[in-house]
Simulated assay, not measured.
Amino acid sequence: MTNPPLNPDDPNGQQPPSPYDQYAGAQDPYSQNPYPQDPYQQGPYQQNPYGAAGPAGGRPRPSVTFQQAIELFFKNYAVFNGRASRSEYWWVALFTFLVNAVLNGLARSIGDSGSMALTVVSSLWSLAILVPSLAICWRRLHDTGRPGGWFFIVLIPIVGWIILIVFLAGPSRQDAWQRFDNGTLPVES
């Protein structure tokens, strides 16, 4: 048994033309990408913000090891533009905490005779890391999609520090590069 033709009036069995045939070759406007380019392919100024060796801008900051984080901390001494990854920030926080703990522990164990010298060393250390600590905190806030000025929330007693820690521990925002990767950017290696 054979199927009857689709159009009994047409001897070839072809379907009559549809009023929608005019759209047959047209592209569906809803299937097009609304963004003309992938934002992770190039930086906002058509340049590679992380140096010639790496891929174009807009990509997340790389996860780093403890040693790499310390090196980047001092290489990007006063760079407040750009972003810092979560690992980059928290390895540095651990490093500065450990150095402060060792200096304070030594000052207590030595007693009065050597504690003055260690107090001076500890004070010099704190002054030496003040600017890079602020810079990496600023860049970490940028990576979470917030302006660096959110750092000043620490001026609110107790609650401000808690809010800042939550912000700093937050995930990276994929679109943060569009707002914060301008000016002198931090180096990656």
Results as ranks from 00 to 15, higher is better:
Ala101Met: 13
Lys75Ser: 07
Thr184Met: 12
Trp150Asn: 10
Gln27Asp: 12
Asp28Asn: 15
His142Arg: 09
Ser189Trp: 09
Gly145Arg: 09
Pro157Ala: 03
Pro60Arg: 00
Leu130Val: 03
Gly114Cys: 01
Asn12Pro: 03
Phe180Ala: 05
Tyr30Asp: 15
Arg139Phe: 04
Asn100Phe: 10
Arg86Gln: 13
Val92Glu: 04
Gly170His: 06
Phe95Ser: 03
Pro132Ala: 00
Leu164Gly: 03
Leu127Gln: 04
Leu168Lys: 09
Pro34Gly: 09
Pro147Ser: 15
Ala84Tyr: 08
Ser133Ile: 03
Gln32Ala: 15
Leu103Glu: 08
Asp143Phe: 01
Asp10Val: 06
Ile158Cys: 13
Gln42Lys: 12
Ala101His: 00
Leu127Gly: 13
Arg86Ile: 06
Ala107Arg: 02
Leu164Cys: 12
Pro147Asp: 11
Gly160Ser: 08
Thr65Leu: 04
Pro44Gln: 13
Thr65Ala: 02
Ile163Asn: 07
Ser189Lys: 10
Leu103Arg: 11
Lys75Ile: 07
Ala53Pro: 01
Leu155Gln: 05
Gly82Ile: 00
Cys137Asp: 04
Trp177Met: 06
Val79Gln: 08
Phe80Gly: 09
Ile110His: 01
Asp9Pro: 01
Ala24Cys: 02
Val187Thr: 14
Pro55His: 09
Pro157Leu: 09
Asn81Glu: 05
Ser31Gly: 15
Gly51Phe: 12
Trp90Arg: 03
Phe151Asp: 01
Pro8Cys: 02
Leu94Met: 06
Ser109Gly: 13
Met116Asn: 10
Arg139Asp: 07
Leu72Pro: 03
Phe152Ser: 01
Gln32Pro: 00
Ser126Gln: 14
Ile156Asp: 07
Ala26Gly: 06
Asn76Val: 08
Ile156Cys: 03
Asp143Thr: 08
Pro55Val: 12
Ile136Arg: 08
Leu118Lys: 03
Asp28Thr: 10
Val102Asp: 03
Ser172Pro: 01
Gln32Ile: 15
Leu103Lys: 11
Ala56Phe: 11
Pro44Phe: 05
Phe66Val: 00
Asn3Ala: 12
Leu6Trp: 09
Asn81Ile: 01
Gly57Ile: 01
Gly111Pro: 01
Asn76Ser: 05
Leu130Ala: 04
Gly170Cys: 10
Pro49Asn: 13
Tyr45Pro: 00
Ala107His: 02
Gly58Ile: 07
Ser172Ile: 00
Ala24Tyr: 14
